[in-house]
Design a protein around this nucleic acid. Structure first.
Lengths: 343, 343
DNA sequence: CTGAAAGCGCTTACAG
DNA sequence: CTGAAAGCGCTTACAG
């Protein structure tokens, strides 16, 4: 005997009434509703999700798709758990569950997406690792699947995203360094066209201009995002014909090797050159001098994603329409001593 | 027009045949099967999971439930992503998806479990943060829900688990230290009754006994698992009437503060006292002298969980029966200089 | 080898 | 306010 049928038989009423009572439909006698709820509790009845999904066309599941690379798994992803937690906290308020789809870098993102969508595994999808040009975006828009992106793209279409405030971080860094007398500030950037690098770079240039400082292309270092990139940055810094007095980093993991390589050449961070890091990272805890870097609260990133997801689901759109605009999560500067070098 | 009906109509055959063809049932004409598959590909047909689930009683989803505490999210959980990835890699081979349920420490584990189970959200459940006494285990056994635990318990029942090789780690640590002449080896242990501490402790005692060394209860330090625990360990170490010459740690995060506190009192790790850490952690990268600690490959933990999960699902049990036994994932010692102190 | 039909567990117009 | 019935999209005995 099936779940709801059993409950209905136990109560001697129809399954329809049981369903209406449990789903808080208005047209149910209040006394009946209480009887039903009490019995459901007693018998431990919970509606079968497949039955509901099939009938209603919604799954009450939100999918979160992200790329797992070896590098991410080992280091950058102390963020990930906090983000997942933040999403979960928000969507759980509406009894939605989180389906996490880790995707190896080799797999085809379109295919995964198509599978989730067509199989109707989820009511909405959160995508991460968004690229400047990202084919998933037109695909999702076209398929009319509610989605939110963690990360902007520069595609000429309108879609929901949240992102970290890279403009703000670059602006604050440049302003801080300039206030300390620096005029030649080098910037480390990703080699590829990843969006956050672009945003960070633009804000760097804009801020320089606003402060009346010249932009020198020689000060732009395109480097890799892993730890080896730190060494590369040091080499480029030392190779400059007209030296820079400060350097700002993208990527979390550059700092350590940068320190080491410079130190091997008698250049001490904080004394001979000012360094401002990017995202704070546990691995930096022991760096001497302590790295000035930006703190991101992963939980609030997750919550923002959750709210924006809800705002995109037909069922909850009205309730969360104030989350309609795209959200930029602040990065808060934690001062260390790595930029104590004052001109 | 529904998915499979549309496809059937397009092909001018019955939905039953379409279903049988796509699901590789033997009793289908090979030519028909090819026609169906080609058409499905062309029209982008993927069966609706709710329909399948309702009919078959299986969801093709594996749930992974774990507790997210602030501490975990910030530090210990560089493991998590790798584990999730490992599980996913294995179960994806059978088109199973991973439903990740992060659970705040405050929530009721039984309730969450009951919800997943009754709602039929998943075919099997992987639980983490298993306690020595853990009520989820009898619940799941009783409800006959296939599950695997990440972590042993000492409940008097038989169930599927995988765990890290804490015995091996403690044994190797004691043997290594004894080989270097140490006879008084202190051990840091969790204050509560968490299982891994128990296992680690037992192996410590067993190994001492096997090597003919006395066990001294004064050398057992019950401390907290966060960073402050490192300071506590240092204080207890220095307060010993008969000093210890070596100390072994549980928990990843103790090392840094232990180093610092000892150093403040003129005691240098590696020179005046030997220290062997627990799990390797990115935060240790910069510790001087480098901490001797154990490396765990999170991916292989995840894979083990995945295989054991499959071995517990009726559909795949036969195929994966060689994973029936519980699995202990090795911890590999990475030598540093923190235990260079030789007697 | 294929088709027609039943039914998985729900929810929801519809009728009363 | 409640019940009877249809139907969401599949799969699978059953019949031929």
């Amino acid at each position: 005997m099936t779940g709801i049928k059993k409950l209905a038989q136990y109560l001697n009423i129809s399954t329809g009434t049981v369903s209406r009572a449990l789903n808080n439909k208005p047209d149910v006698n209040e006394e009946t509703r209480q009887r039903v709820k009490k019995a459901a509790e007693k018998l431990g009845y919970v509606p079968n999700q497949s039955g509901r999904s099939l009938r209603q066309g919604t799954t009450n599941i939100i999918a979160f798709m992200f790329v797992t690379s070896k590098v991410m798994a080992e280091s950058a992803d102390n963020l990930f758990l906090g983000i997942a937690n933040g999403i979960q906290n928000v969507i759980a308020q509406h009894d939605l569950d989180l389906l996490i789809i880790p995707r190896p870098p080799s797999s085809d993102p379109q295919e995964t997406l198509h599978r989730i969508a067509s199989r109707r595994l989820a009511d909405g999808i959160i995508i991460a690792n968004t690229q400047m040009h990202d084919d998933r975006i037109p695909f999702l828009l076209n398929a009319k699947i509610p989605f939110v992106s963690l990360g902007r793209s520069n595609m000429p279409v309108d879609f929901s995203w949240i992102d970290l405030d890279f403009e703000g971080a670059a602006r604050e860094t440049v302003e801080r360094l300039v206030a300390r007398g620096h005029r030649r500030i080098a910037i480390c950037l990703p080699g590829d066209n990843i969006m956050f690098g672009q945003v960070y770079f633009q804000s760097y240039k804009d801020t320089l201009q606003r402060l009346g400082l010249p932009f020198d292309p020689d000060l732009v270092f395109r480097i890799l995002g892993d730890e080896a990139g730190g060494e590369e940055a040091a080499i480029k810094l030392m190779a400059l014909e007209t030296p820079a007095t400060a350097v700002m980093l993208t990527y979390e993991l550059l700092a350590q090797r940068l320190y080491e390589k410079l130190s091997m050449h008698g250049i001490q961070v904080g004394r001979d050159v000012a360094v401002v890091g990017f995202r704070d990272h546990p691995q930096h805890k022991l760096l001497q001098p302590r790295l000035t870097a930006f703190k991101v609260d992963p939980e609030s990133v997750g919550k923002a994603l959750g709210y924006k997801m809800l705002a995109n689901l037909p069922t909850y759109a009205a309730q969360y329409q104030h989350y309609k605009n795209n959200i930029v999560v602040p990065m808060r500067l934690l001062p260390g001593q790595s930029d104590d070098f004052i001109l």
